[in-house]
Simulated assay, not measured.
Amino acid sequence: MKRTGLLTAILLMASLFPVMAQTQGPKTKVIAHRGAWKNTGAPQNSIASLQEAIKLGCFGSEFDVHLSADSVLVLSHDHVIQGVDIEKATAAQLAAVKLSNGESLPTLEAFLKEGLKQSKTRLVLEIKASKVSKERSLALTTKAVQMVKALKGQALVDYISFDYDVCKRVKALDPSAKVAYLNGEKSPEQLAEDGLYGLDYHQSVLKKNENWIKEAQQKNLTVNTWTINQREMMDWMLERNVDFITTDEPEQLLNILKSGR
């Protein structure tokens, strides 16, 4: 009876192994930089590029948020879009800006409402530091966190910023928020001390400070890196088991992960 029971247990484990392998999946996750735009024709930082990232099955889709002159939150990578200075323009003026697909310049509210229709792809909100003042950067931060809370998006929205004071303000406003720092000069030890979720550094920073990858993970910090578009650098980061790779080529990276490299 004992031998029969042992054999049954072995057969059961063997039958479960493929399922376990499928659910575990690759460690490194794909973040679409400004959405999936490069190979789809969708404009960067658009609702369309978010939808494409969701269709691809990206773990996350990154986007950039600014504050208009009349305190409305809008999406754009640059401070000036189509000749319009976002921080000096009103929401009405910015609504007149049309992206290449005819989409209006998205407000954060419209973008979040679209993103929160699903629960698979995380929304990685970059708070862009103001060119005008630190106070405006912090005002943008407060409004962004408040909007995420108002739309009940805390479980799906992560935050990143090049401004360390912004990162700390997000944590003060929402202690449960996942916040990563972008600029690259802070050690994992300092990030951990300040309660951040992780580091999100340019590839050159991690190449120069390779030990930070393991050090961060030992301190339960996540490691993201940007913007990785070349196969050689993707492989380098994958070999070191970074948690996330931000890329303009999410299709390529997803294919690499699916093929097991």
Rank of each mutant, 00 (worst) to 15 (best):
K2H: 14
R3V: 09
T8G: 08
A9G: 06
L12V: 13
M13W: 09
A14S: 12
S15P: 05
L16Q: 10
P26H: 02
V30R: 13
I31F: 15
R34P: 08
N39W: 07
T40M: 02
I47R: 11
S49L: 00
I54L: 12
K55W: 02
E62F: 03
F63G: 10
D64K: 03
A69N: 13
A69V: 07
I81A: 03
I81R: 15
I81E: 07
D85H: 14
E87K: 05
E87Q: 09
A91C: 09
Q93Y: 02
L94V: 08
A96E: 12
A96D: 12
V97I: 14
L99E: 01
S100G: 06
S100T: 11
S100E: 07
N101D: 15
N101M: 03
S104C: 11
L105R: 01
F111L: 06
G115F: 02
L116H: 03
T121Y: 04
V124S: 09
V124Q: 14
E135C: 07
A139Q: 15
M147F: 04
A155H: 12
D158F: 13
Y159M: 10
S161A: 14
F162S: 08
D163N: 15
D163V: 06
K168C: 12
P175L: 02
P175S: 12
A177E: 00
K178H: 14
L182V: 10
E185A: 12
K186M: 07
S187F: 06
A192G: 02
A192D: 00
L199Q: 05
Y201C: 08
V205T: 14
N211E: 11
N211H: 12
Q217D: 00
Q218A: 15
L221K: 07
T227I: 05
T227A: 11
T227S: 06
I228D: 00
N229S: 13
Q230F: 09
E232L: 03
L238W: 04
R240F: 06
R240P: 10
V242W: 04
E249M: 13
E251S: 06
L253M: 03
N255C: 01
L257M: 11
K258T: 11
